[in-house]
Computed example of a mutant assay.
Amino acid sequence: MAFQASSSKRGDAPRFNLRGEADYRIAKSLTMISGVIRLRAFKADLSDPQAALLEIADRIDAVGALHNLLIESMTGGVQLSSYLQQVCRNSAQALAPQPTEFIVDCRPEHLVPFRVALPLGLLTAELISNSLKHASSANEPCRVTMVCSRPRPDLLRFSYQDDGPGFPDDFDMMRDGKVGMRLIQSLCERMHGDGIWANTAGGLRFDMTVPMS
């Protein structure tokens, strides 16, 4: 009996640890999504409550997609290509008033840890929301391009660009930045990332580098 009890405990330990890790990740996800929703609530556009609720649902979907990928993962890492494509699909279904073209250039072998995947997914959803509001027109679909690269094993480079008009010439980030841009900056800082906005000939661009170590 003593041997059987010892064997049972050893068999149960991995399941307990995995369950505890899953609970921890879910708690972190809920805390982060709650913070995003609270920040948006202070600056919500009450003239269009349906759009506000759809944006909240889109952020929750982004977290749900992440956990589905984690369940399927054998290593605990998240395949960035699959995750970003899912975030694009969810955002298009929830927010796009017309067809939107998404291009995700990210190698399947690019894996990121949960601590990076969660804020990066929410940041991407915010970027897409910003593009659909300001870059798209009633006659032409919006085009969004995302590129991921690993210039070094310990560094992730993420680039996002839409084909909209970009910032006005007199745009000042501190003065004119909306709540979405502030959320993007906050999520970038959470990843210890370095984010840069720029107007280009092709549209508005956001580049970010994130340490993996």
Rank of each mutant, 00 (worst) to 15 (best):
residue 78 V to C: 08
residue 184 I to S: 05
residue 156 L to H: 11
residue 66 L to Y: 04
residue 201 A to C: 03
residue 193 G to H: 01
residue 83 Y to F: 15
residue 67 H to I: 11
residue 102 F to E: 03
residue 192 H to V: 10
residue 103 I to M: 08
residue 180 G to P: 05
residue 196 I to R: 13
residue 198 A to C: 07
residue 195 G to M: 15
residue 184 I to C: 11
residue 117 A to L: 06
residue 142 C to Y: 04
residue 199 N to D: 15
residue 142 C to G: 08
residue 184 I to Y: 10
residue 133 K to N: 11
residue 196 I to G: 01
residue 167 F to H: 11
residue 138 A to V: 09
residue 81 S to Y: 00
residue 110 H to C: 14
residue 122 L to A: 04
residue 193 G to N: 06
residue 97 P to M: 09
residue 87 V to T: 09
residue 146 M to D: 00
residue 143 R to H: 12
residue 123 L to R: 10
residue 111 L to Y: 12
residue 146 M to T: 08
residue 103 I to G: 04
residue 130 N to H: 09
residue 144 V to G: 01
residue 121 G to Q: 03
residue 164 G to W: 03
residue 115 R to H: 14
residue 149 S to D: 13
residue 93 Q to E: 15
residue 182 R to M: 07
residue 82 S to G: 01
residue 192 H to T: 12
residue 75 T to N: 05
residue 113 P to W: 00
residue 203 G to E: 02
residue 129 S to E: 13
residue 200 T to Y: 07
residue 177 G to C: 09
residue 71 I to P: 00
residue 108 P to Y: 01
residue 130 N to E: 12
residue 140 E to C: 03
residue 182 R to A: 11
residue 95 L to S: 10
residue 69 L to W: 00
residue 131 S to K: 00
residue 143 R to K: 15
residue 135 A to V: 13
residue 166 G to P: 01
residue 165 P to M: 06
residue 201 A to I: 09
residue 194 D to Q: 12
residue 180 G to V: 07
residue 72 E to Y: 01
residue 164 G to Y: 01
residue 175 R to Y: 00
residue 177 G to M: 04
residue 69 L to I: 07
residue 117 A to E: 06
residue 183 L to Y: 03
residue 129 S to D: 12
residue 126 E to M: 06
residue 148 C to N: 07
residue 110 H to D: 10
residue 174 M to T: 14
residue 70 L to H: 02
residue 107 R to E: 14
residue 97 P to K: 12
residue 127 L to Q: 13
residue 181 M to W: 08
residue 176 D to Q: 09
residue 93 Q to D: 15
residue 142 C to D: 02
residue 155 L to G: 02
residue 184 I to V: 15
residue 114 F to G: 06
residue 93 Q to H: 10
residue 202 G to Y: 00
residue 179 V to G: 03
residue 167 F to S: 08
residue 70 L to W: 03
residue 105 D to C: 04
residue 203 G to A: 04
residue 118 L to D: 07
residue 177 G to E: 04
residue 117 A to Y: 09
residue 183 L to M: 11
residue 123 L to A: 09
residue 159 S to L: 13
residue 184 I to M: 15
residue 138 A to N: 10
residue 120 L to I: 13
residue 145 T to Q: 13
residue 107 R to G: 12
residue 198 A to D: 04
residue 140 E to L: 13
residue 200 T to C: 02
residue 183 L to N: 14
residue 122 L to N: 05
residue 116 V to F: 07
residue 140 E to W: 12
residue 91 S to H: 08
residue 69 L to S: 02
residue 142 C to E: 04
residue 182 R to W: 05
residue 151 P to G: 11
residue 94 A to H: 14
residue 94 A to E: 12
residue 164 G to N: 02
residue 117 A to H: 09
residue 142 C to H: 02
residue 129 S to Y: 06
residue 139 N to V: 07
residue 184 I to H: 06
residue 114 F to H: 14
residue 103 I to A: 10
residue 102 F to S: 09
residue 115 R to G: 12
residue 129 S to A: 13
residue 130 N to P: 03
residue 155 L to M: 15
residue 144 V to N: 04
residue 78 V to E: 10
